[in-house]
Simulated assay, not measured.
Amino acid sequence: MEKRLDPRIKRTRSLLKTALLNLIDEKGFDAITVRDLTDRAEINRATFYQHYLDKFDLLDKSIENELQDLVTTVAPRNREEFTIAGGEPSPIHIRLFEYISEHAYFFQVMMGKNGVPSFQHQVASQIQDFMSEVLDHMHPDFKDAHVPKDFFTHYVAAAMIGLGMYWLESGMKYSPRYMAEKASYLTIWGPVNAIGLR
């Protein structure tokens, strides 16, 4: 991540990321040039090339950093976060929808009409890989499961992406906590039972 970077570097990269998002939103990634990015960010081309190889490198690193932040923020702290009961939303889902809310513009642009087609697949792959790794630690024995682990991770990834997209497209008319409550209910009373965590 970029927490220890010089503030000037962080500011330049932030300006370029914002310029990238604005331009994708306006005309799509394919139509963007490095000059568009530098003009929008109000930096010179030499400065751009000190940080990125080209526009593809800027896009790749922007997505990679965002998804790393997402996974780090949302990561379950313990097994109980998977199986919380009593009508309370899972802390995992609370953190997920709060993160989406705080970074709504990024997700709206990337998944919007001019967005990056591969982004949804990248999000799904990140969630699947992460869930698989977590389950290896928290639920290593799948002999009691009614579905294979890869079925479960694909199901959860698709469900969370679908709910997130619906929420963003609807103008986030529900609060993050409300979304977390409903996602928790769907997850805990459905697929979680199917893999034997309860």
Rank of each mutant, 00 (worst) to 15 (best):
A194Q: 15
D25Y: 06
K149A: 07
W189E: 14
A157Q: 02
V116Y: 14
K113W: 03
M179N: 08
T83A: 09
S14T: 10
L59Y: 12
H154A: 14
N65T: 07
N44S: 07
Y166L: 07
F142H: 06
L37W: 02
H139G: 06
T83L: 12
F107A: 03
D150I: 12
K173E: 11
L197I: 15
L168D: 11
M1E: 12
F29P: 01
T18V: 07
F107E: 01
Y52H: 07
I43C: 07
E81K: 08
D144N: 13
L168Y: 08
Y52P: 04
F106Q: 05
G87F: 11
I94Q: 08
E102P: 10
K149T: 04
G164M: 09
A46N: 09
H146A: 12
M172F: 07
E98S: 15
E88G: 02
F151D: 09
V192I: 14
Q50V: 13
D6K: 00
I100N: 01
E98K: 15
Y174G: 00
S175K: 11
D141R: 05
V192W: 05
Y155A: 08
E64R: 15
L67K: 12
L37C: 01
E81P: 10
I94Y: 02
I63R: 00
F152C: 04
N65L: 15
A104K: 09
F119Y: 09
S175W: 06
S90M: 11
L163N: 04
K55W: 03
E80G: 05
D25L: 02
R79T: 05
L135M: 11
P148Y: 00
F130G: 05
D136P: 01
Y174R: 14
L168G: 10
F48P: 02
K143W: 04
G162T: 06
I161K: 08
I32D: 04
F82Y: 14
M138Y: 14
I32E: 05
A183P: 13
G115A: 04
H139R: 08
K113A: 12
G196A: 08
N78M: 06
V74P: 06
T83D: 08
A19V: 07
F142Y: 07
D136I: 03
S125A: 12
P91G: 00
V156H: 02
D36P: 09
